[in-house]
Amino acid sequence: MLKGLQAFRSSAVTAGRCAANSLESVQRTQEERLQGLLLAGLGGDSGAYHLFLTDLTTFLRGFLRRRLASLPEEVEDLLQELLLAIHNQRHTYRSDQPLTAWVRAIARYKLIDLLRRRARTTLLHDPIEDDDPLCVAADAEAAEASYDLAKLLCELPERQRLPIQYVKIDGDSVADVARRTGMSESAVKVGIHRGLKALAAKIQCMA
């Protein structure tokens, strides 16, 4: 009987180890998959980058929900701010570095930045209502932020707004937009780049 118990124990331990190993390997394959998508995105592959951001959105929404449990109304705002930040800072990712570490560091930085901003504006004294669990949406569900990026976009100067509108929203090519607006192609690209950074700064100021 003792032997049977030992055998059971050791098999339970092995099973536990296997489960841990397979969880680890799932995380590793997920990390590798996401990294592959991001690297393809850095190379200019729109489709891969879209997949990367979509998966990241689900991951980050969960990450923020857990950490902003008392401020659920902030989750989607911060999520959009984070996605914009990750996009604007994507050139700081190095392929020899774990992607999870990079994403987490950015998420943590933006989270702390938000909490500091709230502390400064004393919004922390807002009454915090009890969460109704039925109202908590699934992490993958599309949601809206309290601010409207489309409206913020209108506040940008034309040399940034038009390139973003035509290239990033309407999906026209840079060359087309350059021809249509009379801007040079590099001016269109710079306009997009600076405009997205300006949008991120506007969101940061509002919260």
Binding site: G41, L42, G43, G44, D45, S46, G47, Y49, H50, L53, T54, T57, E76, L79, Q80, L83, L84, H87, R90, H91, T92, Y93, R94, S95, A142, A143, E144, A145, D148, L149, A150, I164, V167, K168, I169, G171, D172, S173, V174, K189, I192, L196
Partner: peptide, 23 residues
């Protein structure tokens, strides 16, 4: 703007980025 629309916007008209030589 919905979050998924933002994702689509960010991925549309994507330019290649040189991350190795950023600094």
């Amino acid at each position: 703007m919905k979050t998924e629309d933002l994702v689509t916007m960010l991925a549309t008209g994507l330019e290649a980025v040189d991350s190795k030589h950023a600094p």
